[in-house]
Amino acid sequence: MTAKLSADDLTLIRGERCLFEGLGFALNSGELLLLEGRNGCGKTSLMRAIAGMLSLETGQVLWNDVPVLKQRQTFHGELVWLAHRTGLKGDLNMVENLHFEESLRPQSGRDREAVYARLGIERLKRLPLRSLSAGQQRRVALARMLLADVPLWLLDEPFTNLDREGRKLVMELAEEHLAAGGLCVMAAHQDVDINGPVTKIQMQ
């Protein structure tokens, strides 16, 4: 299945500041969109706008050529957002957290144990997330992303808190995702080394 994420003439004004103006892109299956720029330049805002959480001054984001705001549920069913805050509950353990996320989505058929093993978190199942390190929590968030098994990944600073191997793993996962025909939007201020068609947006 091929999918397409595009945007045209996006403008976002926050208070007095114009974060971006006339921004557009088109992303097809197997392509990566890399948002680059210094802190506070609006990478996260753009990502929220893509997810349909911000109202823009002008322009719209399209998923398969239909505005995302007109098909919010369908669109949200096909994206997963790895945000800066993991969105996992510290009082619940990994299995409980992931079970909640899974029960909101269609069964993906991914092998849970294989995903846990790949991310190196198979031993942490019964510990409350609060007791895990920040990097381990991020790995659990990555597990949620993999288990959702959706075409569009929105990754906001995915390397935060991860060790060297973790970063490499994220890049590998993204490469595999792209190779399998997925789409990926990534905001990063570190060097990203991913094989595949990359579109870059340098934000001011």
């Binding site: 949200h76 805050r85 993991t86 969105g87 996992l88 510290g90 909101l104």
Partner: peptide
């Protein structure tokens, strides 16, 4: 408040469920 602070509210907002 708890959901807002740990980011799970954002995840609910992009959930495929209404």
């Amino acid at each position: 408040l708890g959901d807002f602070e740990d980011g799970s509210l954002d995840q609910l907002l992009v959930s495929p469920q209404p």
